[in-house]
Write a protein that binds this DNA or RNA. Structure first.
Lengths: 228, 228, 228, 228
DNA sequence: TATGAATGAGTGTTCATTCAT
DNA sequence: GATGAATGAACACTCATTCAT
């Protein structure tokens, strides 16, 4: 189905990439409906129009598919973040920078649940190669994003931008979990008395990340600039 | 291993509480060795010296056992935090307060992996009652801890302390994951080129939480003091 | 609760019988709501206001409780049948006799589902003693009922009445199952095309039992009067 | 035991049907030894020489396997019944017809215990689809058998044959239970005094079904020919 | 390459029954 | 006699992964 474009020379390699992407797309679409543990490999394959075994020609494990998906979404998000920062009229205040970045997070909410599990469910059952590839890509983008942040703010020292992205990652993961609890818990928290435990993702993330941006400069003299 | 405590027939409320605690202890000990998903209920019961069915007399599901465990460890930690804050000569600087609190986190590392999964694995499959009980306790302690922090720092407004504990929770969860990755990933990150992705838990937590403490005061005029 | 009557001499033995009856009552009430396999012994005990262990002082197994219940309901039904037959102006035609008897079945519908399982679920896990007791009672009532039927019709030979009650038992059991299928099946059978498979209990039972009454006389010369 | 048939990879529709049949055969053989509730799915698979999961490729639940088995045996029996009736020199007397049919029942005794539980254990836990399929087949065969019976006897009106097969079903079920009680009960009934409660399956079935055949004609004027 | 049939390890939970108190 | 805490056997079903075709 499809195949509107004429077969090109690089057909084999390209077709492979297309196939892989189609599988990732199917998985992504399915993840709109079900959580990762309930995502059936068979369903993904079916949705992508291939047989189950075919999926395993492209991804050695279910987790590697998930990790590839996270990688892709992460890449898109970094593209957005970097573009957004580079578009800004420097120098950005901490709050302005945080708002800009959080806005991009908002635009990539599908990434969030996956990011939240990437540390546990995904990276747990993946070959060293896949892990290395993923981390290498993550490193590259983290450094790029860090550099963009440093450019945009003008007050950061080299390396501080990347470090802030790491903290952003931690904050996003931690806060997302609290903001989007399991249905039972959500119902419980709806009660007025539990108001203090409710977390509004964007508000809190903006608050916390702004504080971090302020803090990284303020604490510069107390903590070592580079981590071990 | 274990079985040391095997009092037959827990009839009094106290004996029952002991039995429940023994089961939680067995689970906790087992969790030193295996991750939550690999924790077999049968093994926990065996370690506690009771039959499998007995465990279900005290905990309706595996998850409720886990949640009770988290609740207990969380309670202990809060005890420690509050005591530590109340012992301090007020007013504490943000950095001093952060260091004090992070030090208590260090003393309760067994709580960390459980806390990290409480939002996903545990709260997902628990009855509304159990969830409510857990959250009620969490709320109470969070408010207590928040009050203690407000007392210790002297610069926070009412409610800000509790809010900071929520952020602390998010940070701990997020950073712990990054600091303690799966074995494969840990191996990958050992390579020097990945240095920038490595997270040293205490350092980063101290840094981030300090920043938050500073930020909550600094941003007071930008953000609404109370969340919806 | 209760105990309005003054304690009598025979208190112990009587009280025991009362207890047993209370348990049977509780079971009977519960069986209005759930099927036998889903009937929890714990629930029956709770409903009867006693502890689980107490139930086992009166009935050695769950099945023996069920069998006792069937015995009691069966006894009541036989009372009704015999009274109804004895009240009739003899001689009754086969059809009239059948209608009279089926009417009593209608008045004891709670017996039906229990009767239907007595052969499978109940008698399977019961001690020889209990089985013998139940069968002895059944035999006595069957013979009594048979005699009543012979008196009422006037055309039957000795023993044929009892034999007809055995067939009635078989018919009731078989037809009840078909008339009250599992919910899924019932839904399926509602479709018009399945009309031919639907069984209206009373109609069919009346029809079949009438035929048997006619047949027993008509076949007298073909079949041996007494079965092996 | 078994495993004799273990063709790998059933790809064609035919091979699949074979596989399903092999599983049914294994189940049938096992049911010679144990009752349905004690029949372990794992054992059936093992006997058929396949893995447990493979069984679930062919039957979504244990009960659907049982139902398929009943369907198959029922089909064979109907084949036999219809053939037997069609072979007869019409018109058959009620008694002759009954004897012919009961003889076929005798030749398919393996069907009996399954038929006896199909209404309770099997149809209870089956998807609507499976139930519909089974009932559709049952309807078809019942109508066919009914037509054959009408042809053979020559005295029945259209539809009466099918109705009689329904009654036959009820009788077979009810009488089989009484004729083949649980071991404990059987032992009890062996005592001479319980002679009146003993049921000899063939004798009683012949007797009852003959009576029905006679009755359906005799009662024609009393009861509506077609049931609601 | 693609397929999809086959695999089989893995486990939380129920509940009738027992028995220490 | 009454209690109710303790027992523990028993089991269908899933689903990621493999591999014959």
């Amino acid at each position: 189905m499809g195949q509107l474009t004429a077969p090109r020379r690089a057909r084999s390699a390209e077709a492979k990439a297309d196939r892989a992407r189609a599988l990732e797309d199917a998985a992504l679409a399915a993840l709109e409906r079900v959580a990762w543990p309930d995502l059936a490999v068979a369903q993904v394959a079916r949705d992508a129009g291939v047989a189950k075994g075919t999926l395993y020609l492209y991804f050695p494990t279910k987790e590697s598919l998930g990790l590839a998906l996270v990688g892709r979404l992460l890449g898109r998000w970094f593209d957005d973040v970097i573009a957004s920062l580079d578009l800004a009229r420097a120098p950005l205040s901490p709050h302005a920078a945080a708002e800009r970045i959080v806005a991009t997070v908002e635009r990539h909410r599908t990434l969030l649940p996956l990011l939240a599990i990437s540390g546990t469910l995904l990276e747990a059952n993946v070959a060293a190669d896949a892990a290395r590839g993923f981390k290498a890509e993550l490193l590259r983008r983290t450094l790029e994003g860090g550099a963009a942040l440093e450019r945009a703010m003008g007050t950061l020292r080299p390396g501080e931008g990347a470090r802030l992205f790491l903290h952003l990652h931690a904050l996003v993961t931690g806060l997302y979990r609290m903001a989007e609890p399991a249905p039972v818990v959500r119902a419980v928290l709806r009660t007025p008395r539990f108001r203090a435990l409710r977390v509004e993702f964007t508000t809190e993330l903006t608050f916390a990340f702004t504080a971090l941006l302020v803090g990284v400069v303020a604490q510069r003299d107390r903590l070592p600039a580079s981590r071990s």
